[in-house]
Write a protein that binds this DNA or RNA. Structure first.
Length: 807
RNA sequence: GCCGCCAUGGUGGAAUGGCAGACACCGUGGACUUAAAAUCCACUGGGAGCGAUCCCGUGCCGGUUCAAGUCCGGCUGGCGGCACCA
């Protein structure tokens, strides 16, 4: 009989839909395992061939855990608010809610087509009011605990569309839609105080099992640095405070720089003699993004503030002040001390403006470039620090500054508070009203969810406000506190809001009294293993850790951290290694692969294709190899003997394969697990196999290709024999004693060059191996006229002879 | 620019510091077939040689080591992120 994957896959998917073998049971006495993948954004293009990579890998892990006796939760949902849907809706005049509903339907069908073991009864959709009720509830908790506050922040403003743009919509400084210039405009925004959690977000990484590069990226993003805030007296009578980690270079300061947004500039308007030039520079800088401003290789620009000087508190010298856009307002105080001798950006700036370059650490040539001094550099031209090493000088100057009252120690973080509002329609409404008398007032919890009104017009407004602001009957309301007239907040939450705690909602998705029951959270949390893209490391992953920690602090969730383990997958690229994109026309649709080869082949191939952590390019040709493998497995089902025992000739390889596959799945090395199974199948195909051999193979294959396995399992009578599906059987175990081979092939080298191999009994000693090695013709030839100086012998591995000519 | 990561045959990739190229794809030759597809068998890193065999080979330059794809230093190229894409 032919391997009719279409019929088989349909048959088993229909079966699973009814028998629900993937249902997770809260409170079950078996050990629990919570496997999580990042829930997809349901885009209009449907599932992309990149999606199945992480989904299949975690599916395999979860299926193996089930066979190992775990109560497994592997849930799925949709992160459905967001910009692309809204823009699609505007362009095609279809309401975003309708677009979302259709997209989710397509995604659901496609995911089911791939046979994933998701517990579909727990599916969540972030745009469902029953879901975002809890996002809003959490926002109210932030608000109550003074973790949310309003401030003005610059936003991208399209001068053509008259609306706020996302960074992604700004291409080379112009709007991607209309091509008009984009400028920075101040806008009032809700912020979340993630910075309050900066230290804990760093410290608590230590106890987590995240891959190292994720930890490093998060630590660097939070960017803790220990330094000093130094006060410089300004001739206007003000005090200018700068943060520096290099207090040791204070004697090398030859100028100061302010960020164009620094409030001092407006304050000093009357004292700055060249105000027009300064103001023009400031306006020019407002057009640029932080990213453009930060580029090191670009030419430094700036304007001197004529009439303004400051005094260096270390040596009393008077130094000039500039405004320049390489200083950002967002980090530190927006004021920077210029040390051109020892910082390349400062050196470039000083060189351009003809400022003195003072060498304070010996060892470089500051007339040619900045000398970035190391810890053991020796201080010069630095008063009391002369002769100290940099390492000694840093704390010495910190002490000196504190003693003399012009500085104090300070820990700074690069992490910034989180801008939590968007002037958009397709997001969760913020459950606050603004009352003239009472200010910002939360709506009562009993009124949650505050539903997003189903409006006709969700187009962007031309005043930069959210589309909701035009809905006056929705906006105008009464104050829950005083009953007076009030207006609703019309901005919405960013897409990130929905993804911060979705993994908690999965635990108890139909609960309308609580976010999730205590029982469910205590049973399931933390997530045992969360796999997702590296691109989410510093935003989603950090944001969600922050939300979860806050919920822990207010007693809502039971653990300090949401995810115990984090791994990351590489991208699937198009043929030729290019990113898959519509414009390149190289997007592979999983439906096509499934139609041509079946879901099992797609699952197998996407795992076989390469190292899970690395980017890999898709090849339509290569899929055939995976299909051929499944054809061979199918044929074994027809050809194996009726003997229910494991055949002695395959026993060693079977045990070796069980070990390899078991270990590789836990390390996400699915490609080598599959290669090992291919080797086993090749052996079975060439030598023949028993029904007993096949039984083990089917169990090993079950997590990878569940449909074909269940079909063969049933066909060969195992289903009847055991009364279970293969996926419900125990995971096969291997016997260490069966793995030990009685002989081993060892490499023989002369002076590190391979001369041949010898087969010797396992654990042979050096003399035995030496005796065998000297029988090799090539070894004998190499040794002619030579004597052995040294022998390197590693048991069961290698024998290396170091020779020299005989005298 | 800053932070992180990566680089191995024609291709995807494999290799606790110890026989580079497992397992596949492509290709070549053969079997089967009226023929093709499918399947099966053999070969398949580069170079020299009839051959035994020899030389070269893991992005580039240097180092450590008996031994380096693997460790260290310096480059080059590519990828991810840079806070309003998800």
């Amino acid at each position: 009989m032919k391997y009719d994957f279409t019929r088989i896959e349909k048959k088993w998917q229909d079966n699973w839909e009814v028998t629900k073998p993937y249902a997770a049971i809260t409170g079950d006495p078996r050990p629990k395992f919570y496997g999580l993948i990042e829930f997809p954004y349901p885009s209009g293009q449907g599932l992309h061939v990149g999606h199945p990579r992480p989904f299949t890998a975690m599916d395999i892990v979860c299926r193996k855990r089930r066979m190992q006796g775990f109560n497994v939760l592997y849930p799925i949902g949709f992160d459905a608010f967001g910009l692309p849907t809204e823009n699609y809706a505007i362009k095609n005049h279809i309401h975003p809610a309708v677009v979302t509903k259709n997209n989710i339907k397509t995604f659901t069908e496609q995911l089911k087509m791939l046979g994933y073991g998701f517990d579909w009864d727990r599916c969540v959709d972030t745009t469902d009011p029953k879901y975002y009720k809890w996002t809003q509830w959490i926002f109210l908790k932030f608000f109550e605990n003074d973790m949310a506050y309003k401030t003005t922040m610059p936003v991208n403003w399209c001068t053509g569309c008259k609306c706020v743009l996302a960074n992604e919509e700004v291409v080379d400084g112009v709007c991607e839609r209309c091509g008009s210039p984009v400028v920075q405009k101040e806008k009032s925004q809700w912020m979340l105080r993630i910075t309050k959690y900066a230290q804990r977000l760093i410290d608590d990484l230590d106890d987590l099992d995240y891959i190292n590069r994720v930890k490093i990226q998060q630590r660097n993003w939070i960017g803790r640095s220990e330094g000093v805030e130094v006060d410089f007296k300004v001739n206007t009578g003000d005090t200018m405070t700068v943060f520096t980690t290099r207090a040791d270079t204070l004697f090398g300061v030859s100028y100061m720089v302010l960020s164009p947004e620094q409030p001092f500039l407006d304050k000093w308007k009357d004292q700055i003699q060249n105000w027009d030039a300064v103001d023009a520079y400031r306006k020019e800088a407002a057009r640029k993004s932080d990213f453009e401003r930060g580029e090191l290789n670009k030419e430094k620009t700036g304007v001197r503030l004529e009439g303004i000087t400051v005094t260096n508190p270390a040596n009393g010298e008077t130094i000039p002040v500039f405004v320049s856009d390489y200083v950002l307002m967002g980090y530190g105080t927006g004021c920077v001390m210029g040390v051109p001798g020892h910082d390349q950006r400062d050196w470039d700036f000083a060189t351009k403006f003809g400022l003195p370059i003072i060498e304070v650490v010996a060892g470089g040539d500051v007339t040619k470039e900045a000398y970035v001094a190391k810890e053991d550099g020796i201080m010069i031209n630095s008063g009391f620090m002369n002769g100290m090493t940099v390492k000694e000088a840093i704390p010495a100057m910190k002490d000196y500054a504190e003693e003399h009252g012009f500085g104090k120690r300070k820990v700074n973080y690069k992490l910034r508070d989180w801008v939590f509002t968007r002037q958009r329609y397709w997001g969760e409404p913020i459950p606050l009203v603004n009352c003239e008398k009472c200010g910002w007032v939360p709506i009562p919890e009993s009124e949650l969810p505050l539903e997003l009104p189903m409006v006709e017009s969700y187009e962007l407004t031309d005043d930069g406000e959210s589309p909701l602001s035009k809905m006056t009957d929705w906006v105008n309301t009464t104050c829950p506190k005083c009953g007076g007239p009030a207006k609703r907040e019309t901005d919405t939450m960013p897409n990130w809001a929905g993804s911060c705690v979705y993994y908690v909602r999965y635990l108890d998705p139909h609960n309308d009294k609580e976010f999730a029951s205590k029982e469910a959270m205590e049973y399931w949390m933390p997530v045992d293993w969360y796999n997702g893209g590296m691109e989410h490391t510093t935003l989603h992953l950090l944001y969600s850790r922050f939300w979860y920690k806050f919920l822990y602090d207010i007693g809502v969730v039971p653990t300090k951290e949401p995810y115990q383990k984090r791994t990351s997958h590489g991208m699937i690229l198009g043929e030729g290694g290019e990113k898959m994109s519509k414009s390149r026309g190289n997007v592979v649709n999983p439906n096509d692969i499934v139609a041509q080869y079946g879901a099992d082949t797609l699952r197998l191939h996407i795992m076989f294709i390469g190292d899970f952590e690395k980017a890999v390019s898709w090849s339509n040709e290569a899929v055939k190899g995976s299909k051929r493998f499944l054809d061979r497995v199918w044929n074994l089902g027809e050809r194996c003997t009726d003997d229910e025992n494991i055949s002695p000739e395959h026993e060693a390889l079977i045990h070796k394969t069980i070990k390899k596959v078991s270990e590789d799945i836990d390390e996400l090395k699915m490609n080598t697990a599959i290669a090992a199974m291919m080797t086993l199948v090749n052996d079975f195909t060439s030598k023949g196999c028993t029904k007993g051999d096949l039984e083990v193979l089917l169990k090993l294959l079950s997590p990878f290709v569940p449909h074909i396995v269940e079909e063969l399992w049933e066909m060969k009578g195992f289903a009847e024999k055991y009364g279970k599906m293969c996926m419900q059987m125990d995971w096969p175990s291997y016997d260490e004693s069966k793995l030990v081979e009685d002989s081993v092939e060892m490499a023989v080298q002369v002076a590190g060059k391979l001369k041949g191999t010898v087969v010797v009994p396992m654990d042979s000693d050096q003399d035995t191996v030496m005796a065998e090695a000297q029988k090799l013709e090539k070894v004998q030839r190499s040794m002619e006229g030579m004597e052995i100086v040294k022998v390197i012998f590693k048991q069961n591995k290698i024998l290396n002879l170091i020779l020299k000519p005989k005298k």
